[in-house]
Amino acid sequence: MVEKERTRGAWESRIAFLLIIPSLIIFLFFNLYPIIYSVFLAFTNAEFTNIAGRYSFIGMENFAKLLFHPDTRFYYVLGRTALFVVTSVPLKVLFGLGLAVIFNSRLIKGGKILRSLLILPWTIPAMLSILVWRGLFNLDFGAINQMLQSWGFPRVNWLQDTTNAFIVYNIVEVWLAYPFMMTVILAALQSVPPELYDSARVDGAGTWQRLRYITLPLIFRPLWFATILTSSASFQAFLVPFVLNGGGPARTNEMVMVYGYKEAFQLGNYGYAAAFMVIISLIVTAFMLAGMKAGKMAGEEES
């Protein structure tokens, strides 16, 4: 009897593995292996002429060039990216929070329909939305410049100027992110039991005090994790700069992802770009881990 059970168990785990193996192999080969392989590439001289397999090991050369070469763009690109995180994340959080608070009001007639209309942009592929924004900010036929001119202002060269383009990145990033931010925060707001507000009101708490002492502490954790996720997204912004103007003009607005991509696929410096991306990945992972840990700790303190 025991023997029979055991053979059945062995047979079951063989079936179990058979069912898992195909997905596991495909996943390992196309997802995990490239990531491991990229670390190896970072120590090679892979470039256009030898990418199909004839590159060789060159030790730390790529990393040394990245970090210590006098002409390295590493620190500039990293700084530009940090600036984008610092400007776009507060904007995204504020817009998400503001929209969520407004649309959480039960006084709005037809709120449900308006809400689902408002998050409609979420369903449109991001790269298409960004292409449309590229048109909206076009010098000649863009609606933004046409509005400015209709109101008597001069037209603005949005995408071929470093600062202007950076402003456009922020606007587009907010537009792409608000459906997510608003939805997360709205869900958090709606999970606050209304009785809490009622009893606070009875105790004489004003609107500001209710927001400060009831709403914010209760939605803090979801808000924090949404902020971590959206910060990581800002740091890794690729489509927004790449599709709007290629990180231009003259490479002045390249974020880390765009820089890595262009070094590899437009300039053919595959090994050098892999080294760059490995360093960036370490930064992102450290940031995510620290953020999640801080969020967990803050959550434990409160409860």
């Binding site: 292996y33 990531i35 590899a264």
Partner: peptide
């Protein structure tokens, strides 16, 4: 949760593998 950070690095390696 974390592979996102390897996006372009993985892409470069994937390109090398597919080219090979």
């Amino acid at each position: 949760q974390f592979a996102g950070g390897m996006g372009i690095a993985g892409l470069i390696a994937l390109y090398a593998i597919l080219a090979y």
